[in-house]
Write a protein that binds this DNA or RNA. Structure first.
Lengths: 337, 337
DNA sequence: TGCTATACTGGAACCAGTTCCAATTATAGA
DNA sequence: TCTATAATTGGAACTGGTTCCAGTATAGCA
């Protein structure tokens, strides 16, 4: 139906190779011939088939990304960085959104094997050791973003340090009773999210370092979401001896905490300090104190690492840590001991 | 390097066709042969090349989506609907993010021509007549979401009715001085966004119908964004005779309006009513009165229409209108005349 | 036993590009 | 004019699947 390169060659009265050379701007074509071919291409409205080209070249000029819950603002921002970096490199982006354990497993298994893409970015999901092996076997270049796995390159932050940073800040403000709201442990297990767990570790380390024994009843875990965090926080704040400050493992969850405070008529920051994590777009609007990480840049850097590996698969394993920063806004406040 | 179907055939001692039949679960293979082939596939760790398969079949099992500013919550939610519907149909999703006029034009021109995908979804961008012609010439099935163009199928809402609905509600609450904050006209022009313009039309119609002459100074346009809307709203609210209610063409812009009110110490809803559009996720958190549209579903329905057209390109032009609904929350309030 | 219908199987041809080698033509230099 | 070299050009072979036709084996039946 659509014109092929052979049609063009026939009509222009030249050989296949010549048309191919014209399409690819090879210098090995005379000006006159090039013009003739270009005219015929226009006349026949010929468009080279990307598929045939990929097939012949053995490269797809496409990168696949597996992302959990890609509506989360933090994930979206990373994706935006990825897309921007890929577009400027001439690559297209295929997105797989993962919202269940089964789909996570399927994607991690099938996407690399399908050979749809020249490389794979995995956001916030840490492959298990056996999955890492399977990945390596496919020889597909892979880079993790916001996740860590032995012997896979990645771009992350130091989540333990981030958790500690947030907690130390609250301690410095005079808080001693500090609660933590994070992702469901079971959920972390099934998806193998690691950031919430690491932030919890940092939280505990900071407490211990300040001589404050961590209390189990101050640590709550639920499905990642505003509503779930709201319920957890409400519960936490109704303890006989409630925390005076809450550290939420993400800004989305911090929003749930703020709702809980509203539910209970607790003034923030006067009666309750709240700190989040990520510094997503609305955090500024809400005046939320949080730990900023460079989401857009994480996508960009991930692409950079990946393209380097695509160009040269033997590149040594690189792992990049992006900086974090405390952004003090209006939801935290000093209290008297 | 990687094993091909011919390797499998050779090692298993069968023909090419037989291996292909096994891969595709054709019933025309004896149980014994099938097992032998499966064993060899496992042994050689053979994975069929998706590219070769696409090439041979003439279909990519991929759908491309062009979306402007895909970080906007409304766009993300539509994308989520698209991805979900595509995944369940076995299709992959390629995403192109458009943030400049030049990229919009390039994407609209090149993506359909590259024959990377079996179909194309365009979100919130209305192709111009000449672009429609070019699209049709490629014979690629296309469906618009949140956009309208002559002779292209699409899924939209009635934005004029939505604008009227919001405005009528404010009027019913007793407001007479009602302002409008929408996207930059020049921007609409260059991207050819239409929804903000249509909502403005509905706003004007509702005013006229209620015997209220629309005032030019009450209608402001800026780049789509919270900050820009904040500046516009502040300006509007500092008029000698400021509006008592503001209709923002999107929830994101409504958030900017709320910030402006905060800047000027205007209590919402007591001194200023605010209504948004879209009912994005945070709207509920903010208690924002808004017009809800079914974002996720718009993606799903768009995919459904598209897959129908891919299966049968002769499908007659379908255009679907999704319902809208006023969600009254806490940022609007009745005032005495 | 022979014949026919049925169940499998093999592999050539095909999809639309790229690449590379051989052939041809043009150009420069002697 | 002839030769060496450079500049172009043509097209076969190749990429890895699918499809379809022809061929073989097996079973059922008279």
């Amino acid at each position: 139906m659509a014109a092929t390169i052979r049609d063009v060659a026939r009509v222009a009265g030249v050989g296949l190779g010549t048309v191919s050379r014209v399409i690819n701007n090879s210098p090995l074509v005379s000006q006159a011939t090039r013009q003739r071919v270009l005219d015929v291409i226009a006349e026949l409205r010929y468009n080279p088939s990307q598929i045939a080209r990929s097939f012949s070249l053995g490269k797809t000029l496409t990168v696949a990304t597996i992302a959990p819950f890609f509506t989360r603002p933090s994930v979206v921002e990373r994706l935006r960085g990825i897309e921007a970096a890929l577009a400027s490199g001439g690559y297209a982006l295929v997105v797989f959104n993962v919202e269940t354990r089964a789909r996570r497993d399927n994607c991690l298994r099938d996407v690399p094997r399908s050979q749809r893409a020249d490389g794979l970015l995995i956001i916030s999901l840490a492959p298990q050791p056996d999955e890492v092996l399977a990945l390596q076997e496919t020889r597909l270049p892979v880079v993790l973003i916001d996740a860590y796995a032995d012997s896979l390159p990645g771009v992350t932050i130091d989540d333990v340090a981030g958790g500690a940073l947030a907690t130390e800040y609250l301690i410095a403000l005079g808080h001693r009773r500090i609660g933590f709201i994070g992702d469901l442990i079971a959920d972390e297990m099934s998806f193998n999210f690691t950031s919430s767990r690491h932030r919890l570790e940092g939280y505990q380390q900071a407490l211990v370092a300040a001589g404050i024994p961590p209390r189990d009843e101050y640590q709550r875990h639920g499905l990642h979401g505003r509503y779930e965090a709201r319920v957890l926080a409400r519960d936490l704040l109704e303890l006989p001896e409630p925390p005076t400050a809450l550290f939420a493992a993400s800004d989305t969850q911090a929003m749930g905490v703020l709702e809980a405070a509203r539910d209970l008529n607790l003034a923030v920051p006067d009666q309750l300090s709240v700190i989040g994590f990520d510094d997503i777009d609305v955090a500024e609007y809400l005046g939320l104190t949080t730990i900023r990480q460079l989401l857009f840049e994480s996508g960009e850097r991930g692409v950079e690492l990946l393209l380097k590996r695509i160009a040269n698969p033997a590149t040594k394993l690189e792992r990049e840590y992006l900086p974090i920063e405390l952004i003090a806004r209006g939801t935290t406040r000093r209290i008297a001991r």
